[in-house]
């Protein structure tokens, strides 16, 4: 349908073509879901960078593939099983780290390919599900359903309520764990809360970018915003904005260029990061 979008622009002019494009229900659904996930990923991405656990989201996302496969195998909604599986992995990580006495990085490096391998293995028992696997690996936001949008809106509301109450202690714990302990904060509980929030956002984003690319939306816009920010407040505002621009720009470009949306979003976010690097290196961001 959208392969001829360039031809359409030539025939009907840019504005009419875009009006037509945005009137398509599947594009509307994709943009609504994409923008909501982008806002959440932008905010939680900042916390992820403060904690210096950029790899963590990747491990959770990759392990969710096993959850997806288990769901499909038993005929359960796959993102539900993915969520349960990933939350279990996220919550058991600290215990596993202790039991095996390995570094955080090390345990993630084991868990990531293990869960992903498990996922692909289960998929191999499900003939005919190969195209489905591709869309879980790399995302396909254009196939998102209305019910899934309701789910994403629900996740958005819950996350925003939690963050509005607890963003300060979560940031404090991320910034300086030892001092947060001294202040009397329940550091362990706040960490688990952050991990569960992150997991929920990742699973919600699997349709958007797939398990392989979803971490891009957590890390890249937050990194771009970091380059451009002079304060924490600015960082927390800019990161979701850049994330939304990346998703919006990525989806529209993917339709224009007839490219896979997930990959296009990741590349779009990467280009914004390069621009932010240039701006920060040229010292265009004034030091206050």
């Amino acid at each position: 349908m959208y392969t001829s979008f360039i031809n359409m622009i030539i025939k009907e002019g840019i504005i009419n073509s875009f009006i037509d494009l945005f009137s398509l229900a599947f594009i509307q659904r994709a943009l609504i879901a994409g923008v909501i996930i982008a806002i959440l990923a932008g905010i939680v991405g900042v916390m992820t960078l403060i904690r210096k656990v950029a790899f963590y989201g990747d491990a959770i996302a990759h392990s969710s593939l096993a959850g997806v496969a288990i769901g499909l195998f038993f005929g359960i909604y796959p993102l539900f099983t993915a969520l349960i599986y990933s939350i279990i992995v996220a919550l058991f990580l600290p215990a596993m780290r202790k039991t095996f006495s390995l570094s955080f990085d090390n345990i993630l490096g084991i868990l990531l390919p293990l869960s992903m391998g498990l996922g692909v293995l289960i998929f191999s028992f499900l003939p005919g599900y190969q195209p489905e696997m591709m869309s879980f690996l790399f995302g396909n936001i254009l196939t998102i359903q209305l019910q899934e949008i309701y789910l994403i809106i629900g996740i958005f509301i819950v996350t925003i309520i939690i963050l509005s109450k607890l963003i300060n202690p979560i940031l404090m714990t991320s910034l300086d764990e030892e001092y947060a302990t001294l202040l009397g904060l329940n550091v362990k509980w706040l960490q688990r809360l952050y991990e569960v929030l992150l997991t929920i956002i990742i699973v919600a984003g699997v349709k958007l970018l797939g398990v392989i690319l979803i971490n891009a939306l957590l890390i890249i816009p937050a990194s771009s915003a970091k380059n451009l920010s002079n304060s924490m407040k600015m960082w927390l505002i800019l990161s979701p904005i850049i994330s939304v621009i990346s998703v919006f720009g990525g989806i529209v470009s993917s339709v224009l260029l007839n490219t896979p949306p997930g990959a296009t979003i990741a590349v779009f976010a990467g280009l914004i990061f390069l621009i932010s690097q240039v701006i920060s290196k040229l010292n265009l961001v004034k030091n206050s």
Partner: peptide, 24 residues
Amino acid sequence: RNIDTTIPITVNEFLTLTQKSCKR
């Protein structure tokens, strides 16, 4: 200094964050 100084946070924000997390 176990605080990452690449994080964009002002002195004011740093202290406000502590204050808001501090029960004591």
